[in-house]
Amino acid sequence: MSAFITPTALEEFAQYLRAEDRSSGTIENYLRHVRTFSKWLGERPVTHVKCAEWKEFLQQQGYSAVTINSMLASLNRFLDVAGFGTCRVRPLRIQRRIFQKQERELTREEYHRLVAAARNQGRERLALLLETICATGIRVSEVRYITVEAAHTGRAEVSLKGKIRTILLPGKLCRKLLKYAKDRKIASGEIFLTRGGHSISRKQIWSEMKSVCSAAGVAPTKVFPHNLRHLFARTFYQASRDVVKLADILGHSSVETTRIYLISTGEEHAQQLEQLRLVG
Rank of each mutant, 00 (worst) to 15 (best):
R104L: 02
G171A: 01
V140Q: 10
I138V: 06
S214W: 05
V115N: 01
G217Q: 02
R184P: 07
T132S: 10
Q102F: 07
R184A: 12
R155Q: 11
P170E: 06
R202E: 15
G85K: 07
A156M: 10
I133S: 10
H112Q: 06
T132F: 02
W206Q: 15
K203N: 10
K163P: 02
Q100T: 04
I191Y: 12
L129A: 11
L126H: 04
R90Y: 07
R97F: 08
P220E: 06
A215E: 06
K101Q: 09
H198Y: 13
K163M: 05
V212T: 05
L169W: 00
A187S: 07
W206R: 13
L177A: 10
P91G: 15
C134W: 00
A135M: 01
A116T: 03
I200V: 14
D183N: 06
Q204P: 04
R125K: 11
R88D: 08
V148S: 14
G171C: 00
Q100K: 14
E109G: 07
S207E: 14
I205K: 09
A127G: 09
G83A: 13
I138W: 14
P91F: 14
Q204A: 14
Y180D: 04
V143E: 13
I98V: 11
H198I: 08
A151F: 04
V81R: 13
L173A: 05
E105L: 03
E190N: 15
E190A: 15
A135L: 07
T107Q: 03
L193C: 15
R108Y: 02
T132V: 02
I138M: 13
L177G: 06
R90Q: 04
Y111E: 04
R155E: 05
V89Q: 14
D80E: 12
S201F: 15
K182M: 02
R93F: 12
C174V: 09
H198C: 14
E103A: 04
K182T: 03
V218M: 04
R113D: 01
K179C: 02
V212Q: 08
I164F: 01
I191N: 14
T132G: 04
L168D: 01
K203Y: 14
R97H: 11
R175Q: 07
S207I: 05
L169G: 10
L173P: 00
G85V: 09
K101D: 08
A135D: 02
L129R: 07
I186G: 06
R90V: 07
E131R: 06
G196C: 11
C134R: 12
E149V: 10
E157Y: 03
V89M: 08
K222N: 00
S188Y: 14
G197I: 15
I205F: 14
A181W: 06
T107D: 06
P225R: 12
I191V: 09
G189F: 13
I186H: 01
A151S: 14
A181N: 07
K179I: 00
L126W: 02
P91E: 14
P170D: 05
R139H: 06
A116G: 00
C134H: 06
R104T: 01
A135G: 01
G154Q: 09
T221L: 04
R108G: 04
T147L: 05
L178S: 03
A187P: 03
D183S: 00
A117S: 08
T107C: 01
A127C: 08
A156R: 09
A181Q: 07
Q121E: 11
A127I: 03
G122D: 13
E105W: 00
V81D: 07
R123I: 12
G122P: 05
K203W: 12
E208P: 08
I191P: 09
R123W: 08
A151L: 10
